[in-house]
Design a protein around this nucleic acid. Sequence first.
DNA 1: CGCAGATTTGATCCCGGTCAAAGGACGTGG
DNA 2: CCACGTCCTTTGACCGGGATCAAATCTGCG
Lengths: 247, 247
Amino acid sequence: MTAMIHSWQDHDLHPIDVDPRPDLFHGLSKAQTRQIRRAFKSETYEDGESLPRSGVDAPFVGLVLSGVLREDRATPEGGSHLLALTFAGEAFARQSRDRAKGTLTAIGETEVLTCAYATFERLAVAIPRLRLNLLHLVQDQLAQAQYWQLLLGRKTAHERITSMLRCFHQRQGQPDEIDLAVKRADLGQLTGLKLETVSRQMRALERAGLIAMPQPSRVRIKDAATLKAETGDSSVRRAATDFRITF
Amino acid sequence: MTAMIHSWQDHDLHPIDVDPRPDLFHGLSKAQTRQIRRAFKSETYEDGESLPRSGVDAPFVGLVLSGVLREDRATPEGGSHLLALTFAGEAFARQSRDRAKGTLTAIGETEVLTCAYATFERLAVAIPRLRLNLLHLVQDQLAQAQYWQLLLGRKTAHERITSMLRCFHQRQGQPDEIDLAVKRADLGQLTGLKLETVSRQMRALERAGLIAMPQPSRVRIKDAATLKAETGDSSVRRAATDFRITF
DNA sequence: CGCAGATTTGATCCCGGTCAAAGGACGTGG
DNA sequence: CCACGTCCTTTGACCGGGATCAAATCTGCG
């Protein structure tokens, strides 16, 4: 097993320090969970297809079962800006009374379990705990947005890219190989960088041996520990081998 | 009246395009509002005093009646980072189940109306609408965080400062003179800039005649229309007179 | 193959960070 | 009242990281 080779160094003091994303069904009985799942509607969206944004059956909360959702917000200039990605296993909540138009679009074939506002209200009357879980869900989104705020305000390009890769890695369940789902320009919108800079930083990480890129949008994490150390989040910043871009 | 001089140019097509912040008491009857106000506790904090963060009577939701609250979050490096300000008339909601420690601190003498979690739950049972208002409150915080995300990711220093000034102006009710409440270094943390850059941009705006600064932390808005045009938010970017920093 | 779109690499420039020093505001004590 | 110290703001000089422009690969597809 190659695992044995890594075992001694992969065993961190905090082997998994990923925060569990809030579970919409947390603290509910099996019967309640079943009741909710029956009320939710299972839908499959093709690549590039957008979820309905208005109407009575527009999704109010939802769960991504497989695939990825991208959330774009229209900019005042008439353009559009990628705000966030929702990976499989994560939940999303739509801002209801919101004139700021956000769009949810499937990336690849995407299965979602959705629920309209009226349905959710009906369920919440029977299961009060559901409202608390929804609140936690939105609060988690807020915490995430604030994390990116910190990232965009204070980090260098190198730290932003490593942070983003680590974030995706954790949220996808720490697989060997993560799926970036979007192209370089979109990654740039998430991190506040230009596509060329994203590319340069990722190639630098590849040359340093921290990651491998079998395909442009597939990233194999080769050294998660060093990657973490390079995010700029840890209290102990190590001296770090040279990641400088070479010209 | 000097007002007459400005009247023709102050009348924009959208004279007030500020979004009303969500009202915690929205849609409630007078009796319900009275019931809630009785259950809330009125407290006054001195300058620099922090609101309790744990314990059964730690505020869960609150309203700032006068003064300003600053919300700081501890960084992994051991430092602390200003995340947001809450001005008079605005509400705040605390992330309950949150290991990420945020601190609310009064700036100047600050009156708040607060409510512990247990009390809120009791009220919400009697007044279900209150839960919806809370959800809207948190969703508004999320929308705000996402706006700053856009600001930090895409705007120039000049656009960030004008955006920030305009944001404060709107949120303080568009007075002639706004109160920055914090020093340059803190404004820098909000906007992702260094204190010197904040200072330079603000002096540039003063020299351009858009604002005046009778005191370092008091800003008189002299030309709101141009200020708005310079935020980079408007669809029509005007040619703009020169705001370049002169050395 | 030929084409369009995405990524990578290169060369150059400029905005904003960094370091340093000079005001300014304000309180305390002589 | 002024001298002094502290903290904040402003200004200056310089530099580097990331943006920008441009061109060269790479990739998938009809």
